[in-house]
Amino acid sequence: MIPINSQFILALVVAGFVGAVAGYLGTLMLTKRMTLVGGPLGHLTLPGIALALLYGFDVFLGALLFVFIGILFIWYFGKKTKLPMETLTAIIFPFSMATAFLFLPEEEMTQALIGDISQITPFAVVTTIIISITTFIVIRKIYDKMVLVGISEDLAKVEGIDINKYNLIYLISIAFVVAISVRVVGGLMTVAIMAIPASTSRNLSKNLSQYAYGGLFFGVLASILGILVFRFVNIPAGPAIIIVSVIFFLISFVLRNIKNA
């Protein structure tokens, strides 16, 4: 059991902010059927995290670098080879795992895969908070427009929406959220911290704004409860957050079915 001290509070703050923005962004990704993109992008961070742990700089920076390389890779090969996203995922995931295993000792390996928030630096707290808030504001600005693009690209264009520009902003937002998420849930589970709160919210909400903020709410709630579980039961925080999140999802699923029955 770790003591309730400033490290514990910082862990709560970092996980809470990450959970909020990841859950919120996840709802937008779900409307575009793009939740799975969080998977390969998360996996891509593994070599970056490995570098960061080996050379002693913040995992966020390593992750961010590799996510951007990954987005370029997906964008370039998707364009040139017309390979479907899932094939690219099949290439990226093993490659990232292989490089991480190649370079990292076992203890750091676990940290890269499932996250570690037991040692939080002031740099980590500050970057996480600034990036969470900035990305949240950006996503809120593009949210409605991106939903309309998802319904009909033609309608969106006629309404004067520059689709390429908004897609780019959207992808960059995903990159940043993935990069701040790896500290909390590691490179393996970023897809979950984005997709699960969104699915829970979808089961319980009646309109678009309930849905979007529901994702944020369940993201925060799962993160905070996950950290508490980590504190009292001593299972790693990343998996704890994901398991709590899945429990919420199952409850929402039951509630939705009761309501519709």
């Binding site: 939903v147 319904i151 309109n207």
Partner: peptide, 13 residues
């Protein structure tokens, strides 16, 4: 796949 009300739809404009 996600909840969109008639009102939400108008709010795009």
């Amino acid at each position: 796949i996600f909840p969109l009300t008639v009102e939400d739809f108008f709010n795009f404009k």
